[in-house]
Amino acid sequence: MFGNLLKSKKPQAIETNGLSDDDMEPHVNGNGVSNGLASNASRFTMNNGVSELIRKPVIETKGITKTYKMGDEVLNALSGVDITIYQGDLVAIMGPSGSGKSTLMNIVGCLDKPTSGTYKLDGVDVEKMNDDQLAGIRNQKIGFVFQSFNLLRRTPSIENVAQPLIYANVGGRERSKRSREALEMVGLGKRLHHHANELSGGQQQRVAIARALVTDPAIILADEPTGNLDSKTGAEIMCLFQTLNAQRGMTIIFVTHDPRIASHCKRVIRIADGRIIGDDVTVDFLDACKGDTFRE
């Protein structure tokens, strides 16, 4: 499936043009493919056959800094981060602990505000929003997937998935309809009423992914989504992410230190000491749906 997608990829020059607007100069990997191109498998392009010219940036950060004051010491967690992530990207943000990776994820996830710099998410300037506005943005535009699933125990899957819709003021009937659809999408159509604690780890993470999908967000932000899973289940979950990306054009951002996740992504952004040190695009990323590719 991914192979087909990759074959249909179109020239790269366009992407380079698109990127030239940004301060970020993309790194080019060994394949000589310029950045971003592989990720343009957006629903738009696929379904309508329209050129990738219209690749739409979902995340645009410019000069993001974040400083923490710890007593007299000032800690620069991020010092000028520019990233552009396009609709349909399947990207891993990688870095060792202390690299600023988590801080970046929190800012990209609208859980935290940058000290300076601008951040446009799906066309909305979010850097100056107050906490309530950010809560609304998270609800509408971001689907979170966590390492530890964070499901409500003793609560049926369908209710777990419906939680974000409650905060979006979606009515009960519409809520269960959309929650059921989301669960069917992740292959749990037959586990609607199982309590979260009755499901396996992989199933729980699927419920969490359904919960992230249910609001039809602009991006899915997954923080070490396979960290608590064995390699076989991890591969299954990566397969699900890749399928969502390929078939539905979901923009998916992984935040991870796990090279196995990165190896399944079309694009890898590396961060160290609060700066972007690498931004690579690859066409020959692994297809998790083809067997057990998740072994170390």
Binding site: D131, A135, N150, Y167, T215
Partner: peptide, 16 residues
């Protein structure tokens, strides 16, 4: 605490 964190992450305002 984690449930509260999750609720906030998925869009619950503090007042809710």
């Amino acid at each position: 605490t984690r449930e509260i964190g999750l609720r906030k992450a998925i869009g619950a305002r503090s007042r809710l």
